[in-house]
Design a protein around this nucleic acid. Structure first.
Length: 836
RNA sequence: GCGGAAGUGGCGGAACGGCAGACGCGCUAGCCUCAGGAGCUAGUUGGAGCAAUCCAGUGGAGGUUCGAAUCCUCUCUUCCGCACCA
């Protein structure tokens, strides 16, 4: 009797895996590949059990696929650039690279203690020059193609911290760090032209059958494709262009609205009879603009008019807070009768409302409307278009507008180009040089990487920290050799994570981001898991980068991730774990108490992987108890059933033996499907628990002496057949348990006399003939309720079942003289009687 | 407001139109123990019954079906995402 000592097993097997480089892989075209990836981690310091869940989900998939014969790539890396390290440097003076590498070292230890089967030889960290060199390489390729460009744009600025903030760092209009109200500043920024791929990214969503519908929908909404028309409303000296999806309502456009930032607003001010008064109104308006944007409809009259090109009427031009400068043309035609926002605005300022679409039979007079009518219908008050139905009339109106030269069909996207400039230190330098003579000059590819210089003093004040490093800024122009300045902004860290999965295919390449041949072998990622918080940004950017690299010629596919699992968070006391709340469950505490396997098993068993779960100490104990139970069983039988020379199971077993074998094969079928097809890892574990329960039942029924589940009293098996059945069940159990509890499984595999390690083993085979019971229990339903059960040979025909059901005593009692109107024999099998 | 997902025992959850509550946690009783926060056995949706068994039951109301937790319609609730996108 050996005791289950998980900590010893963890150490022993982790050391063996490391020594044997057990999970390192090479490209091998002869074998089917499987690329299993978890979203790589930001090295924040300590992983909590929420992170652990993600790694273990991936590890269960990776380990299962290895046993299934796949060449499995399961790499690990670090999303190592980012703000927290830099903020820590400002606060404590610890250089970002120091804290980052310390954190990586600690978290790496945690992952290793969990026994995650990573290909450690492929480990990457995005903050290393050998990695970010290729961020720069890709940037330059995009620059070449016009996909990276520079323009002035508005950024968030914290006047107290003297720095730019990302949108995510602005909480309710204030700086996340100091709470100061955030201002906006116009800066020259670099952008990636993701909008060039908007349609392709949208259409590609249709092919993502292995993604959660939720994520697909979120991306579709984020891209936000709108089909409509651009229409010109002439003004005295030019025209205002508006974008509309409802050109069918254009005869009801009774005024035009401009965004406060619209270029014409400034011109109107200058040309107004009283520019000072106009500017005062505008200034007042802009002051309340930020909050008013969210709360209500605000505006003021410019005193000018535009002509509705379809009605010929002159309509007033107003400025309105709710019109967005960055969407469409920054100007809209307002149709108060058929748009709720325009309706509210018209009512507030007494502007005319004109009904032009009739949805029901009766016309609603504009004066009595309580809200806008936004549905399609038959046009009225629309001149020659009266009586036509929208949406069909949309096409005709667009065609007519094109013919008259006043507009054209147009598609708009909510998706905007991706601003990647960050006025921060701890990121990839943008490989651009500014020369007074040659302008914006890309750093030549052979001069990469543009290395991030060491900075010692982090103040958090002023512009980009790199601007304060003269030896970095000062350089020579690659074109003319004259004095020049380097770009001092760094790239958004989302750039780093947009292609790292490709780098894993060839992580040590010094010439290219990766060898196309390697990527062609490993990609796409077959299984990708991570938090749903990346549903849009990271997953959209990665799809964008993949297409860019396709056009550059490095890959030959469009979609990087075949199957996506968004894992749920682990909560403690109903809240997300965080240091400030003091509710963090540290995996290391759990490891020292119960070992890696119990923790792994628990987080897989507690709920389906995509569900949010509440951490439970007693649940973890339950998983530990289960492992002890398995251990005792295997330890007890190992000598009897282990080693060589156990014959395969025959066909002439006793009932108990047949029953155990049936359970074994049924479990193989279920566990395999649960992991590979359904990703229901929780039910895979519960099936294994059932098999263990069955093994204990079998042990009682086939041994000498008093039946007992006391391990000490488990007896001897009498028949070679029983030994064979036990061996089959136990081998299958250990193999199927190994993805979840790899350390205990390796040890038990050895105990059972296997000389090769689990790394060389194969997943157990499923035999449907064995899983098939000789006798089946067939429920009999009467009017939908089960009233009897028939135990019949599996081969019983439908006709026989029908006859047996009708003659069954319990059934007859329930029929009680009533007439049977219909008998259905369904697959299952199951007999259903309809009785009147 | 729009969009998405989900409502099943005391709890986490099973059940891919066919026996509701698998598996586990917790709880109850018992066994074993010097002892036990160990192990084992039995029970554990509610109601009725000594019992076999019967009745009700998957947020609510309808519907489709021989048969619905599952599909459809409406409705309530919760969570998540986007939030003036013209």
């Amino acid at each position: 009797m050996t005791e289950y000592k998980p900590q010893q097993l963890d150490q022993k097997w982790q050391a063996q895996w490391t020594a044997a480089r057990a999970f390192e892989v090479q490209e091998d075209p002869a074998r089917p590949k499987y690329y299993c990836l978890e979203m790589f981690a930001y090295p924040s310091g300590h992983a909590h059990v929420g992170h652990v869940r993600n790694y273990i989900i991936g590890d269960v998939m990776a380990r299962t696929k290895r046993l299934r014969g796949f060449n499995v790539l399961h790499p690990v890396g670090w999303d190592a650039f980012g703000l927290p390290a830099e903020n820590a440097a400002i606060k404590t003076g610890t250089p970002p690279e120091t804290s980052t590498f310390n954190n990586i070292a600690h978290m790496k230890g945690q992952l290793q203690r969990l026994g995650v089967s990573y290909a450690w030889d492929r480990e990457i960290a995005t903050c290393l020059p050998e990695y970010y060199k290729f961020n720069q390489w890709i940037f330059l390729k995009m620059f070449e193609r016009g996909l990276a460009y520079r323009k002035r744009s508005t950024v968030n600025w914290c006047p107290s911290c003297q720095t730019v903030l990302a949108n995510e760092q602005v909480v309710e209009g204030a700086c996340w760090r100091c709470g100061t109200v955030v201002e906006t500043r116009d800066l020259e920024q670099w952008f990636f032209r993701i909008t060039a791929y908007a349609d392709e990214l949208l259409q590609g969503l249709e092919t993502l059958a292995g993604w959660p519908e939720k994520v697909v929908v979120m991306q579709r909404n984020w891209i936000g494709r709108s089909v409509g028309a651009r229409v010109r409303f002439p003004i005295a000296d030019g025209a205002i262009e508006v974008f509309t999806t409802r050109i069918d309502t254009i005869h009801g456009a009774t005024f035009v609205l401009l965004a406060p930032e619209h270029p014409l607003v400034e011109r109107f001010a200058a040309e107004s009879p009283d520019p000072a008064a106009f500017r005062a109104a505008l200034a007042k308006f802009r002051a309340l603009d930020r909050d008013a944007r969210l709360t209500g409809k605000e505006g003021f009259d410019t005193g000018r008019t535009a002509r509705n090109p379809f009605t010929g009427a002159d309509v007033p031009i107003w400025v309105a807070n709710f019109v967005l400068a960055e969407y469409g043309t920054g100007a809209i035609m307002a149709v108060p009768a058929h748009d709720q926002r325009d309706f509210d605005f018209a009512r507030k300022y007494g502007l005319p409302i004109r009904v032009v679409v009739q949805s029901g039979d009766q016309t609603v007079p504009a004066g009595t409307m309580s809200e806008a009518s936004t549905s399609y219908g038959r046009l009225i008050n629309s001149g020659e278009y009266d009586g036509q139905e929208s949406p069909a009339v949309l096409t005709r109106l667009i065609a007519d507008a094109e013919e008259r030269g006043i507009g054209a069909g147009e598609v708009q996207y909510r998706l905007k180009d991706w601003g990647i400039s960050r006025q921060r230190y701890w990121g990839t330098p943008i490989p651009i040089i500014y020369c007074d003579r040659d302008g914006v000059v890309p750093v030549p590819l052979d001069q990469l990487p543009v290395a991030l210089p060491k900075v010692t003093a982090f103040t958090g004040k002023g512009d980009s920290p790199l601007a304060q490093v003269p030896e970095f800024v000062t350089t020579t122009c690659p074109v003319c050799g004259g004095p020049a300045r380097r770009e001092t902004d760094t790239m958004d860290t989302f750039v780093d994570s947009s292609w790292y999965f490709l780098r894993f295919c060839d992580p040590r390449n010094t010439d290219l981001p990766f060898d196309p041949a390697n990527a062609s072998y490993w990609m796409p990622v077959d299984f990708y898991s991570g938090g749903v918080e990346h549903a849009i940004l990271h997953l959209l950017y990665s799809r964008f980068f993949t297409r860019v690299l396709r056009d550059v010629g490095l890959v030959a596919f469009d979609e990087p991730f075949r199957r996506l699992l968004t894992q749920g968070m682990v909560l403690k006391d109903g809240a997300v774990m965080s240091k400030s709340k003091g509710n963090v469950v540290d995996p290391d505490d759990m490891l020292s108490k119960y070992g890696a396997d119990a923790l792994r098993l628990y987080v897989m068993f507690v709920a389906p992987p995509e569900k949010e779960v509440e951490w439970s100490d007693s649940g973890l104990e339950g998983s530990f108890r289960f492992l002890v139970r398995v251990w005792r069983l295997v330890d007890h039988w190992a000598e009897t059933i282990g080693g060589e020379g156990i014959p395969p199971c025959g066909d002439d077993g006793t009932d108990a033996e047949r029953r155990l074998r049936r359970k074994t094969h049924e479990t193989i079928r279920r566990v395999t499907a649960d992991i590979e097809e359904r990703m229901h890892l929780n039910t895979a574990v519960s099936s294994l628990m059932e098999l263990v329960n069955e093994l204990y039942v079998f042990s009682e029924g086939t041994v000498h002496g008093a039946p007992s589940r006391h391990p000490q009293e488990l007896g001897e098996v009498e028949r070679m057949q029983s030994i064979a059945a036990l061996r089959e069940a136990t081998d299958a159990l250990v193999l199927m348990l190994s993805p979840f509890a790899p350390h205990a499984a390796e040890e038990m595999w050895q105990l059972l006399g296997h000389t090769e390690s689990l790394a060389q083993a194969q997943w157990p085979g499923f035999d449907p003939a064995v899983a098939q019971a000789a006798e089946v229990v067939v429920p009999v339903q009467i009017n939908g309720k089960v009233r009897a059960r028939l135990t019949v040979p599996a081969a019983t025909t439908d006709d026989e079942l029908r006859a047996l059901a009708l003659s069954d005593a319990a059934v007859r009692q329930h029929l009680d003289g009533r007439t049977v109107r219909k008998v259905v024999v369904a697959k299952g099998p199951l007999v259903s009687l309809v009785v009147q």
